[in-house]
Every structure is written in C-alpha cells, then in structure tokens.
Simulated scan of single mutants.
Amino acid sequence: MDVRQLKYFVAIVDASSISKAAQALYVAQPSLSQQISGLEEELKVKLLLRSSHGVKPTEAGRALYKHARQLMRQMEQIRVDVREGSGSETGTVAIGFPTTVAWVLARPLFSYVRRKYPGIKLQIFESISGYITELLANGRLDLAILFRDVESSGASQIPLFKEDLYLVGDAGVAFSEGASVCTLDQLASIPLALPSTTSGLRKLIEKTFSREDVMLNVVGEVDSLSTLIAIAESGDAGTILPLSALSGRDTATAPVARKLEPGIRRTASLCWSDVLPSDSATIAVRQAVVDLVAELHRDGRWPGIELL
C-alpha cells in the first residue's frame, strides 16, 4: 500500500465514479482501476461496489476512506508546516449544510474564508439533512450543520440557534385579515408540498402532526428549496419552512409566512467527528461558522432564529 493508491481511492469515493476520478487526477481509467485492484488484492478485501450508477465503498472501503482521507490531510499539513511554519490555516475543509441553512450561510461563509484564510479551500456540500448526517459519519465531511439538540456517539457539537417553522403560502385558503398564526387544525385543510420522507424537516413535521393527532394533506414531495417556495408563491400548495428560507426575497412578491400553533421548533448545531483529529484549518472554519451565524443574525440577514 502506498500514498498514491490511497490518494486514488479517496478521489474515487469522493467522485462516486472511477471515470470522473480519472479525469480529475489526469490518470488513464484502466491505470486507476489497476491501482485499486492492487490495493484490494493487498488488503484481501473488496473496497468498492461497482454498478451502473457508479461506485460506492463497501464497509471495509468506508473504514479505509476515513484513514486515507486523514492521512492526506496530515501530509498536506506537514508540507504547510515545513514551508510556512506550524499553525498555518491551510488545507481543504469539507462542510455540509442542509438546504435551508445553505440558503443563508453558504455564500457568506465562502466569502469570509476566502478573505480571512486564503490558504483554505472550502468544499461545500448542500443536501437534505439525512444525507449530510451520512457523509459526516462516513468521514466525507469535516464539519456539518445538523438539526439536533443532543450529542450523538462519536461526534461533538456546538449548538448554534433555534428556529420556528412557518406555513409559507396558503394555497388559496382564506385566513382572517391580518392573521399571522396558523393552527395545525387549519393546516389539515391546506394542500402541502413538503420535502421527501428522508428529510429531517419532513420527519419533524410528521412527528409533530402525529403527536397532535392531525392529518397532513401532502400533495407533493419536493427536495428543492427554490421550487418549494415557487409552488407556495403560485398558490397551488403551501409548504412548511423556517422564516430564513424567505430571506433576501422581495417582500412584495414573497408568499405570506404564518407561524404555526402549537409551534414546531428545531435546534441547529455545528457537528464534527470525535474519531479523527481536527487540523488548524478545520478549527478556523468551525469558529468562522459560529461568528458568521451571530453576525448574520445581528445584522438582520438571518431572520427567525434565536442564538444559543
């Protein structure tokens, strides 16, 4: 086993494709496949599962990925420390955001890191919270913002904020003039477009409605935030989102947001793995996230949250 093989393996897992990894590495695909075959032969385990949809790591492959990725990070840090002195904030940091958080935080964080830490390359992943949780557990991410308020095994976290959920749009259902609140009983008559059942937001909504013994009227499942808002604007269906999802939109055309009663509230935390040590670049980005969330809230650019 050598460093080149491990580098190739990490690239393949990141790309979920041998051909895409070969292009990124400027290596012929047969040569790349041969290197991975040699690695599997040496370790006497299968590392990748190949299908028409690409490749994904086996259980053994996921274990190797965690160690290999950390080794790549350590080697990168060695080069930086020798060249520039220890403590330099340089390297690649992968961070995952649920879509509603990325909507507000991703671009300001990218600008902040580029300005303050030009030696850090950010990799930003945006997806539903369930997939972000999986990427963090598999070692694909260094940091992730997840909606959880209790610590889980193998991970540390910093609570960032709490936010309430709102009915966005009303699908033509008449509310009394000036009504700023929608009860869950009223929601039973409103057609809703919601994220798919793998979404943490959807699971929270279903749990609350089940507890209150209210039926959800779901007429469509959409895992795109911009599309959900567009549907709410059209009046074809309402949706349930945090107020921050409407930030930056023209108030004249944005759909009406009404707070739910009883309320649905969730806690967002910045999470990272306890299994692998954090380097100086990851620690710098971690602090940048905490500082930016406070700044965006203070400046009114992140409405509807309560800092923790």
Rank of each mutant, 00 (worst) to 15 (best):
L187V: 11
R286Y: 14
S88T: 02
S224Y: 14
S273Y: 05
L43A: 12
R50T: 04
P277V: 08
G172Q: 11
R73F: 06
N217M: 14
R258F: 08
R258H: 04
R62T: 13
E41S: 12
E40Q: 09
F9R: 00
V222G: 05
K259W: 00
W103F: 07
Y112E: 15
A15I: 15
E295R: 06
P159Q: 14
S37W: 07
P195G: 15
E59H: 12
I158V: 11
Q70S: 09
G178M: 11
S269V: 02
P255H: 11
P98K: 15
S51A: 15
R301V: 03
L47S: 07
A284P: 09
Q35Y: 10
G38A: 09
I145A: 05
V219D: 13
V285K: 03
S199G: 14
D279T: 02
E212I: 07
T133G: 11
D291L: 11
A188K: 00
V219A: 14
I158K: 10
P159R: 14
L292Y: 00
L296G: 13
A284C: 05
S17W: 06
D291W: 01
G300K: 10
P108V: 11
S176C: 08
V218K: 07
T227M: 12
L292A: 03
I128H: 08
A28H: 04
L43S: 04
L270R: 06
H297K: 11
G91W: 01
L6Q: 06
Q186M: 12
E89I: 08
R265P: 01
S19H: 03
S19Q: 03
E134Y: 11
F161R: 00
L243N: 02
G38P: 01
E84Y: 13
E295D: 03
